[in-house]
């Protein structure tokens, strides 16, 4: 059973604004029947000020698809079309208290239905620019199509590069076989063959000076930042106390449901870089750290 939030369950059991909206003047229909979801979004738009006065939906889909549809109608009611178009799929997921990575496409479908409905109102043709493939990286919800296109567009040739560009494989690393298979396929297209990078040199533990150690820690933090900043978050080194490294999670990272995954990834890289077992602990950066105020 999925680990749905209480809000997701509530919106599924008691969906808001479900059913046909007879006098709708903006209708968006999107979906992917092969993955079991399809959504018709109906809006009543006041032509005077382009405000959405009413919204309803009909959805063929799983619990989170129905909950995402319900959440979407609640979010956009009362907004102008331009305001509504600023609603991202992450906003829908956040409204629901988060969605499992495998279910993020349900919130994407909600956003696409909205774009399609607005285009319908404005007499435009909306075309979908988003193709979905099998989910490869479950930590960061990255699918095969995304990985394949990124490899092709940037001439990537290693799993590490794929992780840097898409985040796929940056968490638990169990999808590396899948990423390697995609790499092998794309590399074959351009007449190359995939070879795994040589394993990283074994670090000799206990040989680092304090300064070298701090520098290595800073390097790991710097390496992690671009990925997090891409998601409007950030990470900062606060202090190092023996084998415990204190960091501060900023912006969207702070309180994010993926925080533990992110920290786990950073910790794994720290251990790799330092060649010793360390702990990475999040703290609030604002609280000025006195040595004895640190968490034990």
């Amino acid at each position: 059973m999925w680990d749905y939030s209480e809000t997701v369950k509530e919106h599924f059991y008691n969906p808001r604004n479900a059913g046909a909206l007879p006098d709708a003047n903006a209708i968006g229909e999107v979906g992917s029947i092969s993955c079991g979801d399809a959504l018709r979004l109906m809006l009543k738009v006041d032509p005077g000020n382009e405000t959405i006065t009413d919204a309803s939906f009909q959805t063929f889909g799983c619990g989170s698809a129905i909950a995402s549809s319900s959440a979407l109608t609640e979010i956009i009611k009362g907004k102008t079309l331009d305001q509504a178009l600023e609603v991202s799929n992450q906003d829908i997921a956040d409204f629901l208290g988060g969605l499992p990575p495998e279910k993020m496409h349900c919130s994407v479908m909600g956003r696409e239905a909205l774009q399609s409905a607005v285009a319908n109102y404005r007499g435009e043709v909306w075309s979908d620019d988003h193709e979905e493939g099998a989910l490869i990286c479950k930590c960061f919800a990255v699918d095969a199509v995304m990985i394949e296109e990124t490899i092709r567009a940037n001439n990537l040739c290693s799993v590490e590069q794929v992780t840097n560009y898409t985040k796929a494989g940056g968490g638990c690393s169990s999808c590396h076989e899948g990423i390697e298979e995609i790499l092998a396929k794309v590399l074959a297209e351009r007449g190359e063959s995939f070879t795994a990078a040589p394993p990283p040199e074994k670090k000799v533990p206990g040989k680092l000076t304090t300064l070298e150690r701090i520098r290595k820690i800073e390097q790991v933090i710097e390496k992690a930042r671009p990925n997090l900043q891409r998601d409007h978050g950030d990470i900062e080194l606060v202090d190092v106390d023996g084998k415990t490294i204190y960091v501060s999670m900023k912006g969207a990272c702070s309180g994010c449901q993926m925080e533990a995954v992110t920290l786990g990834g950073v910790q794994a890289q720290m251990i790799e870089a330092l060649g010793e077992i360390v702990k990475v602990i999040p703290v609030k950066a604002t609280a000025k750290l006195a040595p004895n105020s640190l968490p034990a």
Binding site: G19, E29, V30, L39, R40, F57, F60, I66, E131
Partner: peptide
């Protein structure tokens, strides 16, 4: 009742055509 393929008392007429979403 929530399904776009379903009408008042049964499937909408020609369901695959009546509801033909843009496929993602």
């Amino acid at each position: 009742k929530l399904s776009p393929y379903w009408g008042e008392n049964g499937p909408v007429t020609d369901p695959e055509k009546a509801f033909a979403p843009t496929y993602a």
